[in-house]
């Protein structure tokens, strides 16, 4: 077996190493190389972006499915079941599971894997936990690049599980072709609270733990919510799928099969209506803006901090000697001129 333990790490941290070779290894499905590159991207290693350039031409093939919902709704369990279902079709599958970083220590406990460990030794399933590291949209900043890496590795389906979300953490729509929102009964009127945020991004609703009281009511509320929107002919109306108690094996499996079929239907719909193209266009826009932000704003802030100018700006704003608008205009003038000159 090819030994990549040292070489990959050495390569990712240094200049002038063979990014083409590393990219090739990943494209050939080397798990170690791929997981290390994801790590380097999480840690913002500059050289890792070089490798990504060689990987990019091999991406754009995988279907990306987002799974989101409130904490404890059953996202990891549903994800785990989808992995099994896709493996039955002999699809190669990857999972990116995001959990929150502590705002105090910066540490994290990443526990989504617990529900998926039965797939740990399947060589065609790649599961990676990511911490949010301060990102606010329900994902990690490295998710986009991680998707590219898994895509280039030849995964057919990439499942992206968000942190437990509230209302606004909807970044998953920038990455997924199909978004599944997992809900549970018993939240009562809380559904009112979430209808503006994550309720809008669902392509498919799942009511999980549907053996519990309140399922019918939740289903009714959802359907009336969807009816409010009105229906245009040919438009996708998010189906509501009930998923029974995981212990009622027969109905549970049937429900998961329905979910899989619906994911397929949605994908067909995207292709047929050319919505897929629109989604990909939006994805490209978001991606370019993201890279612009990180590669222009990042270095400027770093430079300002290194020279102490940033602290100076902070104290001048605090003492009301200057306003942030003027200060930033000065910075902009300096950097943009220098950059072009």
């Amino acid at each position: 077996m090819e030994n990549t333990s040292r070489s990959t790490r050495e390569c990712s941290g240094k200049e002038g190493c063979d990014h083409v070779e590393l990219a090739k290894r990943i494209i050939n499905g080397n798990i170690r190389a791929a997981s290390r590159l994801i790590r380097d991207l999480e840690d913002d290693v500059l050289q890792a972006k070089e490798t990504l350039k060689h990987i990019y031409p091999h991406t754009g093939r995988a279907q990306v499915i987002g799974i989101t919902g409130s904490p404890g709704a059953g996202k990891s369990t549903i994800t785990d079941e989808l992995v099994s279902a896709f493996r039955e079709k002999e699809n190669k599958v990857a999972v990116l599971a995001v959990d929150p970083s502590s705002p105090f220590s910066g540490g994290a406990i990443l526990g989504d894997r617990i529900r998926m460990q039965r797939h740990a030794s399947d060589p065609d399933v790649f599961i990676r936990s990511l911490a949010t590291r301060g990102a606010l949209g329900g994902l990690s900043n490295a998710v986009g690049s991680a998707i590219h890496i898994l895509d280039a590795m030849g995964k057919d389906r990439i499942l992206v599980e968000t942190v437990g979300v509230g209302q606004q953490e909807v970044d998953v729509i920038n990455h997924a072709h199909t978004v599944i929102v997992v809900l549970v009964p018993g939240m009562g009127d809380d559904i009112q609270a979430i209808k503006a945020g994550i309720m809008e991004v669902a392509d498919i609703f799942v009511i999980n733990k549907a053996h519990r009281d309140g399922t019918r009511r939740l289903q009714k509320e959802l359907l009336s919510l969807l009816d409010l929107k009105g229906e245009c002919p040919g438009e996708w109306k998010p189906p509501v799928i009930l998923v029974d108690d995981v212990l009622n094996k027969d109905t549970f499996n049937e429900n998961i099969a329905t979910l899989c079929r619906t994911i397929e239907d949605h994908h067909q719909h995207l292709v047929r209506t050319r919505l897929l193209e629109k989604k990909l266009e939006k994805k490209a826009v978001v991606e370019i803006l993201g890279v612009l932000r990180s590669s222009i704003l990042g270095p400027i802030v770093k430079e300002l901090q290194a020279t102490g100018e940033f602290d100076d700006m902070v104290s001048r704003v605090m003492k009301r000697q200057n306003d942030p608008y003027t200060l930033v205009e000065e910075v902009k003038g300096n950097f943009l001129r220098n950059g072009k000159g």
């Binding site: 798990i31 170690r32 997981s35 290390r36 994801i38 790590r39 970083s101 220590s105 910066g106 540490g107 994290a108 406990i109 990443l110 526990g111 894997r113 617990i114 460990q117 740990a120 030794s121 790649f126 599961i127 990676r128 936990s129 911490a131």
Partner: peptide, 24 residues
Amino acid sequence: GFEVIYTGCHQTPEQIASAAIQED
């Protein structure tokens, strides 16, 4: 301040080793 991946109980050494590699 560390990132911790917890796998839960009853893991085989094979599951642990491959998960450790996937998680880097």
